[in-house]
Design a protein around this nucleic acid. Structure first.
Lengths: 218, 218
DNA sequence: TTGTTGCTGGACCATGTGGTCCGGTTCCTC
DNA sequence: GAGGAACCGGACCACATGGTCCAGCAACAA
């Protein structure tokens, strides 16, 4: 997962190449550790060790743990949006949606449904604990949904979707199915529920196709 | 939320009425606190204070924090299933499903989408941290889905649903929409996404009705 | 009544964890 | 190359938090 330049440098301070690299290493380690253990269960010492840095570096680049977590929210959000943009910005057909679905399912099946969505898990853990993180995550979800709804808009404009299809609502429904699917798959340690959930949402979208192709969804 | 006898007494030990009451008080406090703060962010001292007990009582009734959490998983699961059973065991029509949806939405809207589902949030927080809790939660989800699918089976047997409707898959999809809806609503501090998600799932189920009544979903 | 066990209060302990400090090194600027 | 700021290593600190202990009271069986 290469991720150069995703992390924003600090506010009005001079910053060296080495500094950027260190900050990046910290965020990358935090990203990996907190995905599998959760935010609160990951200690700064864990991150320090995994990132081959020292305490002073952590506190040189971030004011405290909370700020590190907030930076991670931004970092992870940028990674997800970057990945999703690649898969969605040219979406113009129903089969494109199916390919997108398959990619997500396959990625998640690699670890038997474990860990879930990096954004969703943070959302549930932080929403009632850090208002700033919550609103940032909420914006990221909105941007993600917009990538989907933009694609659906294109499909509607091209006459693939009926006029009465509501791209925004369809995108929200699809996102909910995705997140709920992640959650159930994580609890079951099995991707199957995620597949069922996504298929339901795709089926719903398909019902708005002008010419409902009767190809299977996978 | 009355909840007598939901908590199981301890294994082969003599136990007094007073002991049961204390144990119940502890679980109830843990339930309330961990719903709003999350499991890991709630300390034993918080629980001790909120339940008007002492450290020794906590450790008299539970071996350690992990066991308390596991007991809470059971406790909360029983509460949810009890509540859901009341709302679902007589489900025989599509409008019954709509009423069920409305009840959930209304309950969640009381706190502007905050806190989410007691089971879902625990699932995401504990799944990668406590295998026993995870499998217990997974079973609870399965039981919950079964309440739904049983209702759908009844509808199919009564000729309301088409024969090609798959109650199990429909129930899983609905549950995913519900959980994803909770998650997005929590992140947005707004019930709207939860409504959209549930409506999508209901719409999907409605498409399997033999006589698709064109009443609105709410 | 008496013995045994459940139950409770609360002081106390061990340590994991977030956070500080300071001396030293690297890097940029003039 | 000299000054200063960014950067780094790691020892150190404060304290929150999970967990222990024990003395005493309540409850129940005989």
């Amino acid at each position: 997962m290469s991720d150069e330049q995703v992390a924003a440098p600090r506010n009005g301070r001079r910053i060296s190449q080495r500094g950027i690299a260190t900050r990046e290493r910290i965020l990358d380690a935090a990203n990996r550790l907190m995905l599998v253990r959760g935010v609160n269960a990951t200690t700064l010492d864990d991150i320090r060790e995994a990132s081959q840095t020292s305490k002073s570096q952590l506190y040189h680049h971030f004011a405290d743990k909370q700020e590190l977590v907030r930076a991670l929210v931004t970092y992870r959000g940028a990674l997800v949006l970057q990945r999703e943009r690649a898969g969605l910005e040219r979406l113009r057909s129903f089969s494109g949606l199916v390919r997108w679905r398959n990619a997500l399912v396959q990625a998640n099946s690699l670890n038997n449904g474990k860990y879930g969505c990096g954004l969703g898990s943070m959302a549930l853990e932080l929403s009632d604990q850090d208002e700033q993180a919550r609103s940032s995550l909420s914006e990221t979800f909105a941007a993600w949904e917009k990538l989907i709804s933009d694609g659906l808009h294109r499909m509607r404009d091209n006459g693939l979707l009926r006029r009465d299809a509501d791209p925004e609502k369809l995108a929200t429904g699809l996102m909910a199915a995705l997140q709920g699917g992640y959650l159930l798959a994580n609890a079951a340690h099995d991707v199957a529920p995620m597949e069922v959930a996504l298929d339901m949402a795709l089926e719903h979208i398909r019902s708005f196709l002008v010419q409902p192709a009767d190809e299977p969804t996978r």
